[in-house]
Amino acid sequence: MIISRTVSIILRFGEFVSAAVVLGLAAHFLNQYDNYRVGPLGREVYTIIIAALSVIFSVVWLIPTTASMLHYPADLFLSAAWFAAFGVLVNWIEKVNCGGIFSWGIISVRHNSYCGQWKAAEAFSFISACFWFASFLLGVFVYHKLSRDPVVTDGHRRRWRRSRV
């Protein structure tokens, strides 16, 4: 159980960091849109909402308890939301002259480059989706392990049962 809690903490920290990076970049893009009307507003707003929710949930669930690993349906939902965010970011970069989706050459990624910043947001959104999906898999593993292992209380072995309420 200690290993799964340690892995959970590492995954939650990775979720937090990647979501914070995307949140910062998306906020910058939203500011650019507000100032210069550059960029896709709907995609930026969607990405900011998913990133903000991810920052909140990853910090709350960073506390190492067994219950924090049993939120795997939410982990799956956020993973799907991050894959969707990745998709909308990739779809937009195809419409801008920034090279290929996975073209990370010196020309496309420069200091203060719009294309480089957009590709960084794209990359970290994919990384975040992977972290959330790994948390989902860990949660499923822990849930099924807890449902099979007996719980010892007062010297008697009992099965862990789900509530029928």
Rank of each mutant, 00 (worst) to 15 (best):
N31A: 14
S54L: 01
V17R: 10
G99Q: 00
T66C: 06
W92K: 12
R43M: 07
S58W: 01
R37N: 13
Y46A: 03
R37Q: 15
L25P: 03
N35W: 07
T66N: 13
N31P: 05
Q32V: 12
D34V: 09
N97F: 04
Q32C: 08
A80M: 07
P64S: 07
I101G: 07
I56N: 08
G100S: 04
L62D: 01
V59H: 03
R12N: 14
L23W: 11
A27C: 12
F77C: 05
S103W: 02
M69K: 11
F16W: 09
R43A: 10
S68Q: 04
A81G: 07
L23A: 15
S103K: 00
L76S: 03
E15D: 14
F102H: 02
V22W: 02
F13R: 09
I93G: 03
I10R: 11
I50A: 14
A85W: 03
M69L: 12
A74C: 08
A52I: 03
F16E: 02
A74E: 12
N35G: 06
E15M: 15
L70H: 07
W82V: 00
A19C: 10
I101Q: 13
L53P: 00
S79F: 00
D75R: 06
F57L: 13
V55G: 01
T65S: 13
D34I: 07
G99P: 01
Q32M: 13
L53F: 11
F16A: 10
S4M: 11
A19E: 06
S79G: 15
A84M: 02
D75Q: 09
A19D: 04
G99K: 00
N35D: 08
A85S: 14
R12H: 15
I93W: 05
L78V: 03
W92F: 05
K95I: 04
P64D: 03
G14N: 06
I63L: 11
V21I: 15
V90G: 08
A67H: 04
L62G: 15
G14I: 05
H28R: 14
R43F: 05
L62E: 02
A80V: 06
S79V: 00
A19R: 04
S103T: 02
F77R: 02
F16Y: 11
I10F: 12
Y36R: 15
L25C: 12
L76A: 13
L78I: 05
T65I: 05
G100F: 04
V96A: 14
D34P: 01
L25W: 05
K95V: 05
G100E: 01
L41M: 10
R37K: 14
I9E: 13
V96P: 03
S54G: 13
